[in-house]
Design a binder for these strands. Structure first.
Lengths: 201, 201
DNA sequence: CTGCCCATGTAAATCGTTACATGATTAC
DNA sequence: GTAATCATGTAACGATTTACATGGGCAG
């Protein structure tokens, strides 16, 4: 269900076409929820049938793209969803599954997995740090549009929820990197002990 | 695909029935990959058809339960999968989606969400800490069976990969708690500033 | 005029959840 | 005897990915 509400949330900042939304879920919003065009276009039609969004034909657009807007009913549905208690998805971590069964592999191969883990999260970290930075300078169109709807005294709160979200992701990425570095160190300590045992014999 | 290999991994430690496997994915292995019986039973049949596991009728069992074992072919397939590079699943975090769109809600409600976040991860933390503890004393049957197959000099490595996995999850839970506590503090600072502004007017 | 990105989709397959069915065993 | 747990599933649905189709605009 989250995709549905993530789309509503996006359209709550500013109207958008299917393509714009798809681009967002591949990049910006993709930091928190990712989705492909093939899932987004059908969802938009369902949301329109529900009356939660409405699509106007934009004649100024040379291609016949439709610009979708959040309706008042849609805004209410969105508000109800975000305020309802979260149900947390079950744990599903393919890298952990690999790690626990990697005990029949060469330690070098384990180390290589951990290094890939670090590389993966370094990339995430860089992405999220630059996205966070874009929140605070005025460069983020979405954010500017969202702030423009609200009185000045609420701007700090609007900004804070985004910063908290990015900071959480940044902290997660940093943790994964630190964890994997520690794991490599522990693995190496173990290997050295093994070697010295063998040497003793 | 991970479920398939997680099942193989489990059966690589010790043979098991469908029910035992289902129980494991609801509890023990559920720390890293969770799955329901309705997904596990069909998967077992597919794995048997592939020849990656084999199920023997156990006559000593009053119920006609079948005991599945990993075959050599299955062991090879498992090894190939765990050693192959991981592809990391896309980001999909419903709590973050809620948070970024909670900026139209009362800060008390935001705080309540963050407190639920803490409660959720405190539970996870407790679970994982006790699971980790069970790894190091001899109480874990799976682990004992896995160690029994291997020469003593490899025991440290077998144990290490599990400890690393649990420690990673524990660190994640601690991070989520710390993050949410910090978030509540930042939210309160903001609210106090708002109040004092209003008082000045 | 060729190749690339823009833009909007459909269809099929895969993965996971929810709901339900069934019968046997064990604890109280 | 009755409730809980053991044990094995099936069916339908929902969510997501993969693969494919299509046509317009634009840069070289």
């Amino acid at each position: 269900m989250s995709l549905r509400y993530a789309i509503l949330g996006f359209l709550g900042s500013t109207p958008g076409t299917g393509y714009m939304i798809a681009r967002e879920f591949a990049q910006g919003a993709g930091a928190f929820w990712s989705a492909l065009p093939s899932q987004i276009y059908p969802e938009l039609r369902e949301l329109e049938q529900l009356g939660w969004i409405s699509g106007e034909q934009d004649d100024s657009d040379r291609l016949g793209r439709r610009l979708f807007r959040l309706t008042p009913v849609g805004a209410t549905a969105l508000q109800a969803w975000v305020e309802a208690p979260t149900d947390y998805p079950p744990e599903r971590d393919p890298e952990r599954v690999k790690l626990i069964f990697l005990d029949r592999s060469d330690p070098d191969l384990i180390r290589h997995h951990l290094e890939s883990h670090i590389a993966h999260h370094r990339e995430k970290l860089a992405t999220w740090q630059s996205m966070r930075a874009a929140m605070t300078d005025g460069s983020h169109r979405q954010m500017a549009a969202r702030l423009a709807q609200r009185p000045k005294r609420e701007h700090d709160l609007v900004l804070l929820t985004k910063l908290l979200a990015y900071d959480g992701n940044i902290a997660r990425a940093e943790l994964e990197i630190a964890w994997a570095e520690g794991a490599i160190a522990r693995l190496e300590v173990l290997c050295e002990r093994q070697v010295s045992k063998v040497e003793q014999v």
